Amino acid sequence: MSNLIKSEWFKLTKDQSFRVLTLLLISVAVLFPLLEFDNTDTGLPTVSEYHLNNVLGIHTDIIKLIPSILAGFFITSEYSMGTMKSIVSSGNSRGRIYFAKLSMFSVGAVILSLLLPLFMTGASTVYFGFAGMPDLAFYLQTSGLIALYGAAFASIMAIFATIFSDSGKTIGFLLFMFLLVDWPLQVLAAKVSFLEPIINHSVFRLIYDIVNISQLDGKEVFIMVLIPVITFITSGIIGSYIFHKKEIK
């Protein structure tokens, strides 16, 4: 198993899409705060305000959309190129292969998810000054939850990246699904009463509460942490089963 994980980690670090997405996010994180400098407005937000309103304001889209692109290239492309067939024939069980791939893809998704909170907050500190820094506990809590939810959504992406055999289809489907999934879920929650608590306690809904973590009580925080863990494990089992049944050409 350790050799599989090392192999997947090596492929992740060499993956061109991962490198491009990393550089793109770092560039955006460093340059975006410069938009706050306006010749007609000399007032600048504090780092705490910027972290809350700008950095955390877009974290849901980053977690759900950017790793979807990585899924198409890091996972699905191996089916179309024949790489996965060689891996399966290496003698390792399909379960080990899938979870090694899922683990390293999740690591990549978490890294991509944390780049903006890290670099954009750091850049705003340089540009706006060190006054009004965000509370350290709040910063660590939100960053930790972003990592957890990044891994949870990565496990969902891995399922569809395994189902499809074309990178374009995987990327297109995942982007389309995550852009539009909120509205159908809201309708289901309103129309079907027994689904409401399930939907309201899913990663699709709870991800929007990360910004409000400081206002939640202990039970709500526990749920915020538990749900992505359960999602990751459940999605991993489902994906492993699909991979086990999949005909690899």
Rank of each mutant, 00 (worst) to 15 (best):
L12R: 03
L12T: 01
D15E: 09
S17M: 15
F18L: 01
T22P: 00
L23W: 12
I26R: 01
I26P: 04
L34E: 08
L34W: 06
E36Q: 10
F37N: 00
D38S: 07
T42H: 08
T42V: 04
T60S: 13
D61T: 09
I63Q: 03
K64S: 09
L65D: 11
F74H: 03
I75P: 04
S77L: 12
S77I: 01
E78F: 01
E78Y: 05
S80H: 05
T83S: 14
V88W: 04
S89C: 15
S89H: 07
S89Q: 12
S90E: 09
G91Q: 05
N92K: 06
R94Q: 03
I97M: 08
F99V: 07
A100E: 06
M104W: 00
G108R: 00
A109D: 04
A109L: 08
L112Q: 02
L114A: 11
T121A: 12
A123T: 07
Y127K: 11
Y127R: 11
A131P: 00
A137I: 11
F138Y: 12
F138R: 01
Q141V: 00
A151H: 10
F153Y: 13
S155V: 04
S155F: 03
I156Y: 02
A158Q: 07
I159W: 10
F160K: 09
F160A: 11
D166S: 14
D166V: 10
S167W: 05
G168E: 01
I171K: 10
L174S: 05
L175I: 15
L179C: 09
D182N: 05
Q186I: 02
V187S: 02
A190D: 11
K191N: 13
F194C: 02
I198Q: 00
I198M: 03
I198N: 00
H201L: 10
Y208A: 12
I213K: 04
S214V: 09
D217A: 13
V221A: 10
V225K: 06
L226K: 02
V229T: 06
V229P: 02
V229K: 01
V229D: 04
S235Q: 08
H244F: 15
K246F: 14
